[in-house]
Design a protein around this nucleic acid. Structure first.
Lengths: 241, 241
DNA sequence: ATCCTTGGGTACGATTTCGAACAGTGGGCG
DNA sequence: CGCCCACTGTTCGAAATCGTACCCAAGGAT
């Protein structure tokens, strides 16, 4: 494979590395593609790689005896495998692909070595972990006090932030798992959102039509994690396009 | 002040440090006491210290325009100020004392320097951050799918884990803020728990009487964060006593 | 063109929680 | 000793969500 050029990297973290830090990890990076429903790692299994998405979205879900539900999502703004960055090579969480895409990944040992070697690399990755904690805590907040419609609005916004198109291929069933509610509840919420014209829904697809109004509907359920990300990194989660 | 001996430290993280790592931070440690409702740091304000509780409990709460609610709690098993450990000196969260106690604390710059210097110190503190992420994600999980009674049971268990006595000084009002529900809902939940004999409630106090049954009531809402902690550290959150 | 699987729409009673009052009451304080 | 107030108990209608079931429709597969 031709040597990877940093300038062609879309992932915000990799793209933000200093020249030296990029040179440190570059030899160990490999390009991969991932498909919907694929698992990047499973609960309680040893994690082998840390993944930096280029396109697509990965969901971090908690697996319990009573089903799974989403605690966070990561696209090209971040990395998958925060546990590894924190020095733990397994976690009770599972990582599942929510939207197919491409990514760069690096082996656990190689990343650990690079992080031990470079304080600036370490600092960058740890700052992302901080923003991820805020994201998870906002999930907790949204689950505690917001209606299904508001939480769905939040989820659609977060997905929209991480995709290039306004059209997202998702089913009601899938969204109900992500939100931790029943499927008919999602159907009603979708209809309400569609009624106000902020989205259009067809079989297996949701299209965002009025993002601003969608943010109004989501209210405080959406926003503070995204604000924290841009505070910490000086650029927003959602890229201009 | 007489030189602090590691052997007399109760905080699990400080106590787990290697002799060398402890010597590294020891000169910068100062002992403090904290009172109920005191703030260790406030949302969006610069954090000056990282705190290692010896006794008592700190709550990490998210502050929003529509009130606050708890995303996690920390006692002598951990540290307060994960953002600093991750290289960020402010956060959108607020830290409030839930149960009065004592703690050791260290200035941000001194801790940063020590962490830069010692990979093993860094590794220990980062492992705690990992367990904290799992705790927050379990809060998200509990909020999504469990009744007030179950969530209250979880909260009481978590508090019980971090106190030395079975008696906790808390009001319904306080618990309702922590859980993000209305106060009368807590009153009902308390009565239900009291009815089955697992707790005894008096004005401003809750006493745990049957911890095992309380765990049964909490079900999956409690447990996986605690399991992860003991996985990572090889000792449980709750100390024998 | 037809089948059949998957996804979406609907219904309905049961249950939980909300929102907003208002009424007791324990115990510290003057 | 009695007042006062924070804390607890209770009520009630409204709203949201649940649990469960059944039917319809789209669109790929054969």
């Amino acid at each position: 494979m031709a040597q990877l050029q940093q300038s062609s990297v879309r992932n915000r973290l990799l793209a933000s590395l200093s020249r030296d830090d990029f040179a440190l990890v570059q030899p160990h990076i490999e390009a991969v593609t991932f498909e919907v429903r694929e698992h990047l790692f499973r609960a309680e299994q040893t994690i082998t790689h840390v993944t930096f998405p280029e396109y697509g979205i990965a969901s971090i879900v908690a697996d319990t005896e009573e089903g799974r539900f989403e605690v966070g999502m990561v696209g090209s703004e971040g990395l998958v495998g925060t546990a590894v960055v924190l020095g733990v090579d397994r976690t009770p969480h599972t990582c599942m692909v929510q939207a197919a895409g491409e990514a760069f990944r690096i082996g656990v040992a190689e990343l650990q070595a690079a992080m031990d070697h470079s304080a600036t690399l370490r600092a960058l990755l740890l700052r992302f972990v901080h923003t991820f904690i805020v994201q998870v805590s906002q999930t907790a907040y949204a689950n505690a006090g917001y209606s299904i419609e508001e939480r769905l609005a939040r989820w659609l916004l977060m997905t929209h932030d991480r995709l290039e198109k306004d059209d997202m291929p998702v089913t009601h069933e899938f969204m109900s798992v992500m939100l931790g509610t029943r499927r008919p509840g999602v159907t009603l919420a979708v209809q309400m959102l569609e009624g106000t014209g902020v989205i259009r829904a067809t079989r297996g697809h949701v299209t965002v039509r009025d993002r601003e109004k969608l943010e109004q509907i989501a209210g405080q359920a959406y926003g503070f994690a995204e604000k924290e990300y841009s505070n910490v990194f000086q650029f927003p989660i959602k890229r201009d396009r």
